[in-house]
């Protein structure tokens, strides 16, 4: 870790560019104060309910709706965990960009690969 204890001059520059003012605020309090423990429990209950719905759906014959519905519920759970438990909703947008670049790239690239295998035609 390069650890520069800034001289007065560089500290001045920090303020000029406003980097550090944001950093201190964000790093120490920013994302975490947004959600209380009780809300985490509510979120977990929602996740549990969706999971129950998923399992229930797999026992009922829903016909053509079944797979899209399950994929939708899966995506909802994914977003809830990423947004709330992983704090992406409250954190700096850079993290969201970095992570979803990976997610979207993975989905697009592998879906195209499966398309060339005619996976979705069966």
């Amino acid at each position: 870790m390069t650890d520069v204890e800034a001289s007065p001059a560089t500290e001045h520059e920090h303020h000029l560019h406003g980097h550090h003012a944001d950093a201190g605020h964000d790093g120490e309090h920013g994302p975490h104060d947004a959600v209380s423990d009780n809300r985490y429990i509510v979120i977990a209950v929602i996740l549990a309910v969706i999971t129950a719905a998923e399992v229930a759906a797999s026992y009922i014959d829903l016909g053509a709706v079944f797979i899209p519905l399950l994929l939708f519920m899966m995506a909802v759970k994914f977003f809830i965990v990423a947004s709330f438990f992983m704090h992406l909703r409250f954190d700096n947008r850079v993290f969201t960009w970095l992570f979803y670049t990976g997610v979207v790239l993975a989905v697009v690239v592998y879906v195209i690969a499966l398309l060339t295998f005619r996976f979705f035609e069966a």
Binding site: M1, T2, D3, V4, E5, A6, S7, A9, T10
Partner: peptide
């Protein structure tokens, strides 16, 4: 002339 005073390197 304006060297930083404290430089910690890893």
């Amino acid at each position: 002339r304006h060297a930083d005073a404290h430089i910690h390197l890893p």
